[in-house]
Write a protein that binds this DNA or RNA. Sequence first.
DNA 1: ATTTTTATTGAACAATATGTTCAGTAACGA
DNA 2: TCGTTACTGAACATATTGTTCAATAAAAAT
Lengths: 184, 184
Amino acid sequence: MDRRRRKSREAIFAAFSELLSKKNFSQITVGEIIEHADIGRATFYSHFETKDYLLKELCEELFCHIFDSTKEHGHTHRHIFDCDAPDSVFLHLFQHLSRNDNHILDLLSSQNNDLFLRYFKVGLVDLIESQLETFEIRIPAELPRNFLVNHIAATFVETVRWWVENKMQESPELITKYFFLVIH
Amino acid sequence: MDRRRRKSREAIFAAFSELLSKKNFSQITVGEIIEHADIGRATFYSHFETKDYLLKELCEELFCHIFDSTKEHGHTHRHIFDCDAPDSVFLHLFQHLSRNDNHILDLLSSQNNDLFLRYFKVGLVDLIESQLETFEIRIPAELPRNFLVNHIAATFVETVRWWVENKMQESPELITKYFFLVIH
DNA sequence: ATTTTTATTGAACAATATGTTCAGTAACGA
DNA sequence: TCGTTACTGAACATATTGTTCAATAAAAAT
């Protein structure tokens, strides 16, 4: 990608992220994004069709990164069972979040956290779907697999929500413990 | 309240609900609402400051109604333990939803279901908070009460979401069973 | 080093949406 | 019947959106 194009794109993402951490998505205007990113109006529209697509691409950048890195871990963990915690895919996710790369936490703590948690959950469902059998969870036979996968993903997301709403005072390890207490 | 005022208010709610079941909240304009409700522009703004407040008041009308009715049930159930299912506060909620009063289901099935489920969850948290001790759920001592309440409410909401996404093929009784399988 | 390709700019543009104002009219309640 | 309250519809200023275009500058290719 052309360097100029990459710089514009990054400037838009940075400006948009900062605005999102301060005010509501629906109240953010394209004009504001342009102003903060310090680019021309036509440039913005040459990159993103609408504000919604911008959000979508931002989420993909943020979360694909997380899931890719945990999937690598997941693959090793799946086979190496002498690891400290066999369930640590989730621990890794919590740790990853608490490191606050790409200012994810600022976004998850903002008024717009629903927007991000929704995207996050979709990725989680895929991850859990593909690894459900490796989890040490007793699966009631009467329960649709589908339902259980959704439940685990949703519980994880809600745990994250609770965590950030409580200013993230707990360690990733403790949060992981809470998570498994309600899942098992 | 003046009959004219009540009629305008109802017309706005009806028009707004219908629009919400068809298209995205952010894409609905005040102009459209006015047109469908068949009222003057100034009338709309004499009732609701913004589209967001309109949504808020609509949610309150919808859900206060549900919670009020289940709280009455809850109070009786709390003391009458020869009832078929002592946990039936949740069964009642599922049944109430499936009756589709006020077209709640249309709204919960729409693209905007997040908006409503968010409001719904807030009411649920209050309900569960006040009745947690009456539930037959073993409470791990290490878990903050706060966390558990949020988890139960979130699980209920996610169960509803799963249900409506799957076209509500299951009976309220079966859904209640799924719910308790993952909660207990 | 020169040429070609590509991206950005800024301004102008029409189209749409927002929220307010006001005088006239109709419905309400007492 | 009379005073009050609500609705109307049009007009209004303002803000936002998304597009267009010619000029300019940076990057890539030769």
